[in-house]
């Protein structure tokens, strides 16, 4: 029994690190720019396809090392342009939040079916970053799960630290709290918006590459990813990176233990119930600011 609980706990940790990786970009961009990106899952898939194109048909030298190296400028530019071209023109309207949601929903439709049109409707698999397993006591783990765990945790903590301890981070926070005020004290608001969007896109692209090599690139999977990320960020408190981190691991654990004890079929209802109860008690999520 004890061993079983350890194993399920490990599963929960794996789930949690996967979720943290999925959600970090969304929470960042929402926290700072208040723009809700519905095409989030499609950018996650873009990461998967980016890696696939480079690795399989093109066969770049250096494998994943070059993929990550090229992904940094690629996703930064894509995100930056997206904000400049599509999102920022909408900011001047009163109901721009709703417009952004609509626009990104359209964009996600366009991107998802664009993938299908280009790459076909079937799923694609990527070669693993590292293969092989490690045995810790009685529990056997995939090496790549450990890599994902470390990367997602350190990524989240790193961002949290940057936001709270560097000048740039504080400028970003200032924009998040009061855009007009931030501009008055000389913070380039528009640039911060675009840069945040770009960095968030970069993070989701990275997440996409890492998780697609663990599972698959699924052209229809982006909605699921979006919804998962949405639930996690809302649960943790939209805009709170620490909250998202907690939320990811709490929901990951919940999924593992409910799945183990009651059956996988009850996981979704349990997750949503927890979300609704939490929001009823704390309307802005676990760590959301009033």
């Amino acid at each position: 029994m004890f061993l079983e609980i350890i194993e399920v706990f490990t599963s929960g940790l794996i789930n949690g690190s996967v979720y943290a990786l999925m959600a970090v970009g969304l929470t960042l961009v929402y926290g700072v720019t208040k723009a809700f990106n519905f095409a989030y899952g499609s950018f996650y898939n873009l990461g998967g396809y980016f890696a696939w194109v480079l690795l399989i048909p093109l066969g770049v030298i250096g494998g994943y090392f070059s993929v990550f190296f090229m992904a940094i400028p690629f996703f930064f530019i894509v995100g930056y342009l997206l904000e400049k071209v599509l999102i920022s023109p909408l900011r001047k309207y009163d109901d721009w939040e709703m417009k952004v949601m609509m626009l990104t929903l359209g964009l996600s439709l366009f991107m998802d079916f664009g993938y299908q049109a280009i790459f076909g409707p079937r799923i694609k698999s990527l070669p693993g970053i590292i293969e092989g397993t490690v045995q810790v006591g009685e529990v056997v783990l995939f090496q790549q799960d450990i890599v994902i765990f470390i990367l997602s945790l350190s990524g989240m903590l790193c961002f949290w630290w940057i936001l709270n301890n560097t000048r740039t981070g504080m400028a970003v926070q200032a924009v998040a709290q009061n855009p007009a005020g931030a501009q008055i004290v000389g913070i380039p608001k528009d640039f911060i918006f675009a840069a945040t969007f770009a960095i968030s896109t970069m993070m989701v692209g990275f997440g996409g590459i890492l998780l697609c090599q663990k599972n698959f690139v699924d052209p229809m999977g982006s909605t699921d990813i979006m919804i998962k990320a949405w639930v996690i960020t809302a649960f943790g408190g939209m805009g709170s990176i620490r909250g998202s981190l907690y939320a990811a691991f709490i929901l990951g654990m919940l999924e593992a233990f409910v799945g183990w004890y009651f059956g996988m079929i009850h996981v979704q209802i349990a997750t949503l119930t927890l979300l609704l109860v939490t929001l009823a008690i704390r309307p802005r999520g676990l760590m959301g600011r009033e």
């Binding site: 599509l86 023109p89 909408l90 309207y93 417009k99 609509m102 626009l103 929903l105 359209g106 964009l107 996600s108 439709l109 366009f110 991107m111 998802d112 079916f113 664009g114 299908q116 049109a117 409707p121």
Partner: peptide, 20 residues
């Protein structure tokens, strides 16, 4: 076929941007 939702998505983006 699959170009249908693709075109619909593009229409939404364009409409939101230019015909608010």
């Amino acid at each position: 076929g699959m170009y249908r939702p693709l075109i619909m998505g593009a229409i939404v983006v364009v409409l939101v941007l230019f015909l608010r």
